[in-house]
Simulated assay, not measured.
Amino acid sequence: MTINDMDDLAGLKDIGRIVANTLQGMAKAIEPGMTTRELDAIGREMLEREGAESAPEATYSFPGATCISINEEIAHGIPGPRVIKRGDLVNIDVSASKNGIFADTGATFRVDPVKSPLDRLCRDGKKAMQIGISQVGADRPLAGIGNAIGRFAGEKGYTLIRNLASHGVGHSLHEYPEEIPTWPVRGERRRITKGLVLTVEPFLSMGGLWASEGEDGWTLYSEPCAPVVQYEHTVVATESGALVVTLPG
């Protein structure tokens, strides 16, 4: 999606606020002993209250309103009977649409007590996303996102999952540019156009390189097996940099 007028921007900010509030509300509700299905139900109720529709459910018939991934699950986890425990890493991905406009956000949360290396991984995962967002702007190189995140990950001794990319969003959940690497890629010559709507969502890991699909056909796991965190915002490329639209309010 490319923002062409104030109506487009207003619609994007509205759904951005909704998914951000839903993510925040779900995060606050996390408690040891609850199931991921119970947590998903909270997200569904928040989306429906705002007149929004779950994007993965509507677009891909995903079996849940949100994606909730625990520990070894790194993305696309199906809400179900799994019980959240103390010490878990819980990744929540919320994407939804309203009036034909989509936004996408996500984050990894710690259920105390979490070991210090994982606590640091979470802080650095959020920092990696922020570094990627700082590279977004009108007529800037698309490769700048992955190059900057890659430098940060290398300096800190992390790896990046290299088959889960950022993407364009707006008129649909995934649209042009459908593959935006959050790792360095040689030969990437595309540039970011003014008004382009995209996600920035690096998957930072302590050794993982690839995401592989599990037996349920949805849940993704790290190869090699290693802790992974993901943080995601939807942003608009402007002449003065990135405008983040997935902020609670």
Rank of each mutant, 00 (worst) to 15 (best):
S240E: 13
G100H: 12
M1I: 11
L164Q: 05
P81I: 10
F152S: 12
K127W: 11
L164S: 02
F152P: 11
A143E: 07
I131D: 05
C67R: 12
P227I: 03
P184S: 08
G132E: 07
R120S: 14
T22R: 09
G25S: 01
P32C: 08
I133N: 08
I78G: 01
Y231I: 11
G43Q: 04
L23R: 12
K156D: 05
A10V: 12
G157E: 10
I15R: 05
K13H: 12
E31P: 02
P181D: 09
P202Q: 08
I101M: 13
I131F: 09
P117S: 03
A148T: 10
L39I: 00
I145L: 13
N147R: 15
E188F: 11
T35E: 12
T105R: 08
R44Q: 10
A242I: 01
P181A: 14
A226E: 13
A143S: 15
R162D: 14
A75L: 08
E239H: 09
G217R: 09
A153C: 06
N99W: 04
G87I: 06
L173M: 14
R140K: 15
L164R: 04
K115V: 13
L39C: 00
P81Q: 09
P56Y: 08
M6I: 15
L164P: 00
H233T: 11
Q24C: 08
S54I: 02
L121K: 03
D14V: 14
S54E: 03
A65P: 06
A143V: 09
G132R: 06
A10C: 07
E73Y: 06
I84S: 02
D139M: 15
Y158D: 07
T59R: 10
C122F: 04
